[in-house]
């Protein structure tokens, strides 16, 4: 019995350690962003509280930067329009793959699945986007990835789980394919659709690479790319540099806070999402 208690104690300590290493980096950045810039760049310990004198100067600088505001706007545009299109296109594809009858179903299925095994690669994809005239447009961040094939398979699995009898009886009542998809199957797959919104939405919020290769005009840059370009600049040990360090901290906070705020509300869907993804297509 004693051994058991010792294990439980160690296990609890381990879990506290996990919580600490998952949360502390973010906590550290938040605390550092309010600290005295002159002291923070030489401070080397654990930060429990901002170093005095407290300052919100870094945030003033960050929000005075027009790129941050345009970054938020661009990201929101891509997030809303992009996720909406992602959802519609993925639903259309997933629905077709659940049908049993169409002659070309197998051919289209193969065409979709094959892309999970082989792709043209980065450079041909880039040249393709240029050829299609999407270069330097926010649509370059939306259209080339409008369907994620893994997501399509996940959604297909969910759609296939809708009782066939419901679909059949709707068919007999003369429902069209769009009606069956949008009135019957989609409402019964709400949980998986919510997971899709999270996956695509988080993807849009966090993405920077596409923007870095497809956009030239900095007014079009999404938030993450703006943040990346700031973080990229190497710091030296001058006063200006310690100031720049503060701004980096504040930038991280500003770009991550929205995710942290909505995180608790979405987290109940996470487990479900992974589970859906794990089931064979």
């Amino acid at each position: 019995m004693k051994k058991r208690n010792l294990f439980d104690l160690l296990n609890t300590l381990f879990m506290l350690f996990i919580i600490f290493i998952m949360l502390y980096p973010f906590y550290h950045v938040v605390m550092a962003s309010f600290s005295d810039p002159a002291r923070i760049s030489y401070y080397t310990g654990i930060l429990l509280w901002p170093l005095k004198p407290y300052t919100t100067e870094a945030y003033r600088v960050v929000f005075a930067n027009p790129l941050i505001l345009s970054g938020y706007r661009n990201t929101l545009f891509v997030l809303i329009v992009g996720t909406g299109l992602n959802l519609i296109m993925t639903m259309l594809g997933a629905y077709f793959l659940t049908l049993k009858g169409p002659l070309f179903k197998n051919a289209i299925t193969f065409m979709i699945i094959f892309t999970m095994y082989f792709s043209g690669g980065l450079v041909p994809a880039y040249l393709n986007v240029r050829d299609l005239g999407l270069y330097n447009s926010l649509w370059a961040l939306i259209v080339p990835g409008v369907i994620g094939t893994t997501n399509l398979i996940i959604l297909r699995t969910a759609f296939a789980g809708v009782p066939e009898s419901l679909v059949d009886s709707a068919m007999l009542d003369g429902a069209s394919h769009p009606q069956i998809l949008f009135r019957i199957i989609a409402p019964l797959s709400k949980a998986t659709l919510a997971v899709m919104v999270i996956y695509y939405g988080v993807g849009h919020w966090n993405s920077w690479f596409g923007a870095s290769i497809y956009l030239q005009n900095s007014k079009l840059f999404p938030l993450q790319l703006v943040v990346r370009n700031f973080l990229q600049e190497a710091g030296s040990q001058s006063d200006m540099a310690s100031y720049a360090e503060m701004i980096k901290y504040a930038m991280i906070v500003v770009s991550t806070a929205p995710v942290l705020v909505i995180y608790p509300f979405f987290q109940k869907y996470f487990t479900k999402g992974v589970m859906v993804g794990a089931i064979k297509g």
Binding site: S207, W208, Q224, R228, L231, I252, S255, T256, V259
Partner: peptide, 8 residues
């Protein structure tokens, strides 16, 4: 969390 932030 975005890779940009994590790597930063």
């Amino acid at each position: 969390i975005s890779l940009v932030v994590i790597c930063g």
